[in-house]
Design a protein around this nucleic acid. Structure first.
Lengths: 174, 174
DNA sequence: CTATACTTTCATTTTGTTCCGAAAGTTCCG
DNA sequence: CGGAACTTTCGGAACAAAATGAAAGTATAG
């Protein structure tokens, strides 16, 4: 007996949504937000707030807040359909685009502030002459340099087309 | 009037600890754990539980739990000093080692489970014949492939010496 | 202008996390 | 043994984040 297509689809969708939510959670992102994103990633057509509410069993306020946030950070778009008042939302589907958006956002929120602090700290301890001061300065400098490298790399990667980068990655793997 | 070396050092240390804590927070890591790690990163000598408690103004239980966790995930080591009962802790200081440890840990906790789910979902939707089923399958497959690539890349990078990778990165940037 | 359909906001409740410190456990030494 | 020095565990207090749903706001059609 062949598996029902509808339930297969539904099961896969649910597993993916759950996992994407868990991943978001590990990244310090609101779980619901990640789940909405997952739902929209797998939706061939844009979805309305009400459809999102229904699919994930969440409240209107919750859905609204997180949809808005998804739009803000560039992972989703609002779609208006001619003649319809209701708003729809769709996710950016291209995986490389998605990756770049996430990369940029995380660089901005995580790497950049850290880089600033590390540079300041390394600078301010540069003049220290005692053993501990020197050791701390060296450690800070090593960290600062690394984060600096990470920042340039992230920026460069996020600005490159998939077709240019993926082969380079594969070469690195070879 | 020259700045006091001691307070300069103290200020830099505190800023760094605060920032590292914030970064940990964004990564879904216990803030205190990240702060302890920061403190140890900047400590030329290993520190005892009591020193950590005092420096960060945290309780014994809290310090103990998080130090243990840091050891578990390979970011710190327990150090026993001959003739002393008290335990000391030190962080891995080498920045590239540190990066690799974090990379491996995050791959294990974030990428691997996601990869499994994506593969399963992509497989189970392979047979679908209606428009929506096909679209969903394609999207899942694109995500699965990307995560697969990320996994190999992470593995490869974490297993490579700094001297081999950093030049390659810089070339990528050039 | 009004009724209606939809969106947004916000005070409140719910849920989840972190931290503390007391108590129990372990190890070591005389 | 016994007890001193230290480590680990654990229940719950304190805090932080997320979700709810009702109320307020806004646009549209008639």
């Amino acid at each position: 007996m062949p598996t029902s297509g509808a339930s297969t689809l539904q099961t896969a969708r649910e597993r993916f949504i759950a996992q994407w939510g868990a991943l978001g959670s590990a990244w310090g992102i609101n779980r619901t937000m990640a789940q909405i994103h997952a739902l929209l990633l797998l939706s061939p057509e844009p979805r309305s707030t009400d459809e999102v509410m229904e699919a994930l069993a969440i409240s209107r306020g919750n859905a609204n807040t997180n949809l808005r946030e998804l739009v803000t950070c560039g992972l989703c778009r609002k779609v208006v359909r001619p003649g319809e008042r209701r708003e729809y939302f769709e996710a950016e589907k291209d995986v490389w685009q998605l990756f770049c958006t996430i990369l940029r956002e995380r660089k901005r929120r995580e790497i950049d502030p850290t880089r600033t602090v590390l540079r300041d700290c390394a600078d301010s301890t540069r003049g220290l002459r005692d053993a501990e001061g020197r050791a701390v300065h060296e450690q800070l400098k090593a960290l600062a340099d690394f984060v600096e490298l990470a920042a340039s790399l992230a920026e460069r990667v996020a600005a490159t087309e998939q077709s240019k980068i993926v082969p380079a990655m594969l070469r690195l793997l070879g």
